[in-house]
Computed example of a mutant assay.
Amino acid sequence: MTFTRIAALAATTALTATAVFAQEDRTGWPESFTVGTASQGGTFFVYGAGWANLVADELGLSGGAEVTGGPMQNMALVHTGEAAFGLTTMGPAAESYAGTNPIAPGLQMTNACAMFPMYQTPFSVTVLSSTGIEDIADIPAGARIGFGPAGSSSDTYFPLMLEALGVEFERRNGGWDDLGGQLQDGLLDVIAFAAGVPIPTVSQLEVQTDVNIIEFTEAEQATIMEQFPVSAFDIPADTYSTLTAPARSVAMWNFAIANCDLPESFVYAVTDVIMSDNERMVGIHSAATETLPEHWDKNTALMWHPGAARWFTENAGATIDPATIHGAM
């Protein structure tokens, strides 16, 4: 299991922390931390790198992001403690807890705990306008489709979704930036994205060339919702210059996760930094408009870290069942 360390880690001294955190009991706190994200060009990377730097700055620690394979690998990295924090999606989280994570089949990754809600991940399809593809039904048999990094949410669920819709394809994997380049070069016919919007790769593509962002029909959306752990979602028209109206989609919630063995006071402080300043989070990525305390109940798969559970109970009026808090029972 390998992943690339991002060189620039934010670092300050504890003297720069806020007065509240300066008085916090820091027993057992690490001097540095990493956040498992995904490939460059995707929303996980931008979002995760941003909040890692924000937390490092506010708490006076050294912290940064790791490029990874996405939600499945992040569950493994956080479970083993190779990364203190990570980003995941409810579907991969549930599979990891059940022991069906393809990275380590049979291993129940229950030492990765919920920390805070991030945003919904819409599933969307992007093609070059020159292909003439305007609907899912237009995708030709044998189309070369890029599904993102192996083991990512897109790679885990989108091939199955398209198969359920009768699409026949050749499966390709890679980082989002790389797949975007392949699409422009004619080496791919379609990219099937699962990422928070706006997706940096799509934004870059529509600056450089003409693209079509394909929405699902109502029937296609209903079929997918019947078979997969997703809900209805409309990609807002102002997300991309290409869109002239909201694009019908489906989405899955994402959560930040923490190694369950991290000190309660540390995870409480990290959660407080993120959840108490949504304006700064939105400045990192607009998907963070959904990074709000009231979405604590979107955790449907993970045990809560006790530090995070305490924050949401004290500050968001959350009623979290003690049976779902790691180590509470």
Rank of each mutant, 00 (worst) to 15 (best):
T37F: 11
F312C: 01
S32F: 05
A150V: 15
M115R: 06
F85N: 03
S124C: 11
T242R: 06
F3Q: 07
Q182D: 15
H305A: 14
G36T: 09
P105F: 07
F233H: 11
E82V: 14
D272I: 01
A251L: 03
I274K: 02
A17V: 08
L61C: 13
F21T: 05
M275A: 02
N299Q: 05
D185S: 15
D185Y: 04
G106Y: 07
A84G: 10
S286N: 02
I133L: 04
A288I: 02
G317K: 10
V250Y: 03
A308R: 02
A114R: 05
G186L: 10
S249A: 13
L179G: 14
A8Y: 07
V190Q: 13
P236F: 02
V282Y: 00
H305L: 14
T88C: 11
P306E: 04
D185A: 15
E215F: 05
Y47I: 14
T68P: 06
D261C: 06
S96H: 02
S241N: 11
Q23S: 14
G166T: 04
F33L: 10
H305G: 13
A65I: 07
T100K: 11
W51C: 02
N278E: 11
D210Q: 11
G327F: 05
N173I: 08
R172T: 14
V250T: 13
I235S: 01
P149T: 13
